[in-house]
Design a protein around this nucleic acid. Structure first.
Length: 205
DNA sequence: CGTGAGATTTCCT
DNA sequence: GGAAATCTCACGT
């Protein structure tokens, strides 16, 4: 419990980190000290170099500034006028790599997550399966908004910690979801046959 | 089951 | 002015 991954974890290759994140836990500590957590089952990598789909592609702006901080920070952005999505920043300061967390399997604090997302703590089976199976859904359930933008994942109230080890054969990859540029790059990684993976469809050119 | 429109801020052309 | 790393709801099959 409460054993965040060290800073060095976030300074490996972004694709390698993206694969390694699968199966580990995304943890957020609430103001009363209790834990909300979920197992990471789906991520997407966004690289600083030659990746037109990355927010960092055209340089630093007010919104994406955290993406250019050093590895181990949380980059939260607001999109479509209503949703938040959260990313793990990787690599040295100034590079602009990040990994979008796309789906979680809810573990600790499920009734709190249910309340944050649906305004009630008892969910139908359908609502429960929709609790954290998308990037904006999991942010709502975990209580992540612009306040969390820039959080240090090494010693604050939010981090990644060790979960069940996932072997390579259980990992699948595909095109990224919801983007129209660099669609051919297979930088979405997810756990095969996992019911918590998002249902979002992949765009084609 | 599938498809399509609307919500509404931030950034880019 | 228009698209965007999304989601939900309405409506037709």
């Amino acid at each position: 419990m409460n054993n965040p991954f060290p800073r060095s974890f976030y300074f490996q290759d972004v694709q390698k980190i993206a694969r390694q994140l699968l199966g580990h836990l995304f943890v957020k500590i609430q103001s009363d000290g209790s834990r909300l957590s979920g197992r990471i089952v789906e991520v997407e990598a966004y690289a600083h170099n030659e990746d037109p789909a990355s927010h960092s592609y055209r340089g630093k702006t007010l919104r994406n500034a955290v993406m250019f901080e050093s590895g181990g920070h949380l980059y939260v952005y607001f999109t479509y006028g209503m949703h938040y999505c959260c990313n793990i920043v990787t690599g040295p300061e100034g590079e602009g790599n990040a990994i979008l967390i796309r789906a979680l399997e809810p573990l600790e604090g499920k009734n709190i997550m249910a309340y944050k997302r649906f305004g009630k703590d008892t969910l139908s089976a359908k609502e429960y399966s929709n609790l954290t199976n998308g990037p904006a859904k999991l942010c709502k359930a975990m209580g992540i908004d612009r306040e969390a933008n820039g959080l240090d994942l090494c010693g604050s109230t939010c981090w990644i910690e060790k979960g069940k080890e996932i072997s390579d054969p259980q990992i699948a990859c595909s095109s990224r979801v919801g983007i129209h540029r660099a669609v051919s790059l297979p930088w979405r990684y997810y756990l095969k046959d996992c019911k918590w993976v998002s249902k979002a469809r992949i765009h084609h050119e």
